[in-house]
Design a protein around this nucleic acid. Structure first.
Lengths: 140, 140
DNA sequence: TCTTTCCTTGGAGTTTACTCCAATGTTTAT
DNA sequence: ATAAACATTGGAGTAAACTCCAAGGAAAGA
């Protein structure tokens, strides 16, 4: 499968796919005689996992760590090392989930109470002067 | 309370606090006779909420939308409009949570099965050539 | 064959969210 | 009174993660 098809498959751009390969988020993809990338099922599986982990908020850097780990550890236990990285990322993810659940509860509380500190804006202390660039509509 | 104390209270820098005010994430803070900011409890409550929502992954842009909404709607129902924005952010948050839960399940599955596409790295297809900048250790 | 559409690379540009700096003024400590 | 430690602003710089571009080669359709 060529790069365009692979990109479409995961709703990524070809640039992103090349970028991921360049920085080491996904392993080097095999090329045909003209140097064109030819994505295998294995490659597509990688991309699928990477896309999911990125969506979940994991950094490109930690995905690179996962992807390159095997090369830089002089260990017999590459598989175990890699599984450990996945476990680390799972732990990260679980922590993020816990934090987000906490914030959701806070938000629910704020909506229910709509308390004084939210009502501050009613006093007109907020104005367009205060807004640097977004919603550029000064005095219309 | 001065800006340094406020920053310390939430483990933010004074620059970040000024930045938030400048772009409209928090309302303008009252100044004393010399133009120094003096944070009220209301301001601190704002900062607390903002910090939490940022931690949960909401963008600065959407926080600005929340903060400035009241000014740009010629509505009597400012409170209702603001509550609606909070509800929208809650919805966003819930969607993110659902997605992250899904990814967590995927990760658990990958760890359990450690399947073929992860094992690809064992073949040595990954090398330092592939790693652009991180872990800069080309043949040491 | 020619035009369109793909592919390659290296490198430059963009966006988001800060983060730092210079120049300058104020408050606090010695 | 003078130094240290605060404060202010406008604007420049930075890191992460793309995103775009130029120059050129390859493949597929009319």
């Amino acid at each position: 499968m060529n790069i365009k098809q692979a990109a479409e498959m995961f709703d990524l751009t070809v640039d992103t796919l090349r970028y991921y390969e360049r920085v080491g988020v996904i392993p080097p993809v095999h090329r045909n005689e003209n140097g064109y990338r030819d994505y295998t099922t294995s490659d597509l599986n990688w991309i699928y996992l990477v896309k999911n982990l990125r969506n979940a908020g994991l950094s490109v850097e930690s995905l690179i760590e996962f992807a390159t780990l095997a090369q830089f550890r002089e260990t017999q236990n590459v598989e175990e090392a890699q599984k450990q990285v996945l476990r680390d990322q799972l732990k990260e993810l679980n922590e993020k989930l816990a934090e987000m659940n906490r914030v959701r509860d806070l938000l629910v509380y704020k909506i229910e109470t709509y308390d004084e500190h939210i009502a501050k804006f009613k006093t007109g202390e907020m104005n367009s002067e205060n807004v640097e660039k977004l919603w550029e509509r000064k005095s219309d």
